[in-house]
Design a protein around this nucleic acid. Structure first.
Lengths: 218, 218
DNA sequence: CTTTGTGAAATCCTTCACAGCG
DNA sequence: CGCTGTGAAGGATTTCACAAAG
């Protein structure tokens, strides 16, 4: 079916992982990939791959597998990352600098449109081909460059006020690296990435491995 | 009950978030917190908070709430992050540098014990009070400083071989920032954090918000 | 009267297993 | 014969709703 009705959230969360694995597969010149091949590259079960892909309405060929290029296109389109989407980075500290200098965004569908900071001392610094701009310029930047996605890389104390500013400027999606919970109005999506949280979970699973046989997260 | 039998994985994944919210609450001088207060600070449902905490065998007081300090201690102990745990960072590029300079690990139970890199040009650089060391020193570092957790911040191409090296040196938990799936032997736990994946998911949820009413992830 | 702790219901997700197609 | 597509089974997780405790 060309159904494409409701794609479960858990499936959506795996699509970027498939996408990345497929892009590596494509680089290696493979034209098709089986569900079990993709499963191994992504670290999941092959039945899961088939079910996930079936939600997209994408068809493989029985006895053969899935066409790699086609899948890449289809997943990219579904996720909305088929064109480069501009992103603004807020905070030119260590992390903001690292993100701005990261060259890998382009092939994943994003482009750093601007880096802003509140600290006057940092304004004008060159970062990966960009000049750090005043945080007060946010509204202009967002409007002029048509940005809707922001990456928040400020200290925790500054995170909420920066988020308020972003929302006021018209941002509707925030990737939050600050270890703080953000309150935002309905209509704004926030995802959080917290390094310490990840380390704590890792630490827990490591310990429980050695003591009893607790199952790690896939 | 002081049961503490099987704590569901989904609960474990939320504990670091609670822990962080509780530490902020403690800083503000609050001695107790209600399930709904904690729920709001962590961005989840209050029934969920109660059920999660009940798995730890922790008891609140009906009509009052949970004792903040006690909860902090109990969750920290459960996660195994009550003492500072040493971590080695592999890769002194932009991201590795940012992580090494990040001052917030200490209060979350971790300490950067070493930073290593394969590039001879980077050896000796000072990073947040540490000197970048040769990747060949890994085995010695891991043994001498009793490190079991590694943060992998190399380019994707180098990730698998770095992981192999880490495993050989005795590391049993890896936080992988490289956009690649790692193959490791049983007994080694890997968690993956991929910035592009997060952006792609954010992008999807943002778009589906504006078109239909798809539910974002909490 | 407020807030916890928890069975039970409802929902969501994964895995199995196999029919059916190429 | 290999591999996809998918009902159905089995788990896991979330939410409800309320009795019981302070």
């Amino acid at each position: 079916m060309t159904a494409r009705a409701r794609v479960p959230e858990a499936t959506v969360a795996r699509l970027p992982v498939y996408l990345q694995a497929l892009m590596r597969t494509a680089e290696q010149g493979e034209a098709t990939v089986s569900s079990s091949g993709l499963a191994e590259a992504a670290g999941v079960n092959s039945a899961q791959v088939r079910k996930d892909l079936s939600y997209l309405g994408t068809y493989g060929t029985r006895g053969v597998g899935y066409p790699v290029e086609e899948l890449v296109t289809e997943i990219s389109t579904f996720l909305g990352v088929s064109d480069d989407r501009p992103v603004v980075i807020v905070g030119a500290g260590n992390l903001g600098t690292a993100l701005a200098s990261y060259g890998g965004f382009h092939e994943r569908g994003f482009r750093v449109a601007a880096v802003v900071d509140a600290d006057p001392h940092k304004i004008g610094n060159q970062l990966g081909g960009l000049r750090v701009e005043q945080v007060d310029e946010l509204e202009r930047i967002v409007t002029e460059r048509d940005v809707t996605i922001a990456v928040l890389a400020t200290p925790a104390e500054a995170a909420q006020s920066a988020a308020d500013r972003l929302v006021a400027a018209g941002i509707t999606a925030i990737l939050n690296f600050a270890p703080a919970h953000l309150s935002v109005p309905d209509g704004v999506t926030v995802r959080r990435v917290d390094l310490s949280t990840e380390l704590q979970l890792l630490s827990f699973y490591e310990r429980s491995r050695t003591t009893d046989g607790a199952a790690p997260p896939a």
